[in-house]
Amino acid sequence: MEENKMMDRNSYTSKIVLALTLTVFMAGSLFGQTAGKVRGTVTDEASGEALVGANVLIDGTGLGAATDESGEYFILNVAPGTYTMRAEIIGYKTAVEVDVRVYIDLTTTINFSTAVEAVAGEAVEVLAERPLVQPDVAGTVINVSGGDIENIPVRSVGDFISQQAGVEQGMTIRGSGINETAFVVDGISTRGGRDGTPTTAIALTSVDELQIQTGGMSASVGNARGGAINIVTKDPRDRMILDVLINQSPANSMSFAGDGEIVKDEDAYWWKPYKDETMNSAGTAGGAWDVYYQSQYPVFTGWDAHMAGTSGSDTLLTKSDWLDVFDWHHRKNT
């Protein structure tokens, strides 16, 4: 009996350890999909030799690293965005790199080169340029910042994605519908468990970084046939953000007038029930029209019923007067 209890206890402990291991592994995988990496070297400007022990920092964050014996450094789990980086080592000028762009799940390479400075000196500022070829990208990847999206006249994230190269209307990628595309927001998949259709109702102004993969996806993107859409939203911890999105639509015609038929034609859809002298006194259901004819026009109770419901000075108005009032209220040619 004691032996069985011991075996059950060991089995229970093993299950707990396995569950914790899987949780840590999945959390690491999810976070890896929403962050990038920065690597590079720090060298002497004159000799080109590696500088060991140089501190490389990302301004505005608590992230940084020191160079190894080869002068190389690696900074992991960097949130996507644009940063300023600096390399510092005693006896050398501080090298500064501005406009360093970090992308989702990609590695940005920034190499520093600085000169000897015996006395405290100035900082060397260099503008970071995006390489033409990124060696860690094996497929077709589009990276867009939230600022780029706000400069495009679109109403939703879906509209913006549908305008990108390789994407058709409705976020169709390579002929596959949205239910066959991985849609990840802040490391969490929004795909439904029933038919795979994801939730794409993301506020347009909440997007900080957007990545679209339309081909050559890596093994980290699972259960996706068409492509992968990865969104990182803005971090609200450091500041409050208020965005206002205003949509304006042009005025539409209020009738179904065809070619050669003006909007105020007495046989037009919105006008006939009020202007047709053969039935407008008793209304559309007054008996002049059959049920089939009535179904083709809006319901109108008739001018007689309208005048019977008036009070005060309105009771002095005749049907002809009310028609004049109707024409005046609808005087615009729209």
Results as ranks from 00 to 15, higher is better:
A251N: 09
L210K: 03
K234S: 06
E209R: 13
T67S: 04
V52N: 09
T109K: 08
W322K: 11
V184Y: 02
L76E: 15
T214A: 01
S249F: 12
I229A: 01
L106M: 12
D186E: 07
S47K: 07
M240G: 13
G170A: 09
L242C: 07
G196R: 02
S11A: 14
T190S: 07
G227N: 04
D8S: 10
P298G: 05
E180L: 10
I161E: 03
Q294M: 06
K37N: 12
T41D: 05
Y92G: 04
V184L: 08
M240I: 14
L106P: 00
T41S: 09
A65S: 11
S206L: 05
M26A: 14
N151R: 15
A219Y: 07
I110F: 01
A165D: 13
F326L: 14
N333A: 13
W289A: 07
T67F: 04
L63W: 03
I58P: 01
V144Y: 00
A203E: 12
I110C: 10
A50H: 04
V126Q: 07
Q211V: 05
L127Q: 10
I229N: 01
S206I: 04
K272S: 08
M85Q: 02
G177C: 08
H330W: 07
V221Q: 06
A65L: 05
M307Y: 00
R9L: 15
Q169R: 13
L106A: 15
N230K: 02
G71F: 05
V17E: 14
A79G: 08
V119M: 09
S249Q: 12
I152M: 14
F183H: 02
E122C: 01
L245Q: 12
N252Q: 13
V154E: 08
L210D: 05
W322F: 09
E49W: 04
N333H: 08
T67G: 04
S47L: 06
D186Y: 04
S220F: 06
T34P: 00
G60A: 05
M217Y: 10
T108N: 03
N179T: 11
L76D: 15
G260P: 01
S47V: 06
Q211K: 07
T109D: 10
S176F: 12
M26H: 05
I110A: 14
N151L: 14
I16E: 11
G147L: 11
A118K: 09
L210G: 03
R39V: 15
Q169M: 12
R174E: 13
Q164F: 05
D59K: 11
I152L: 12
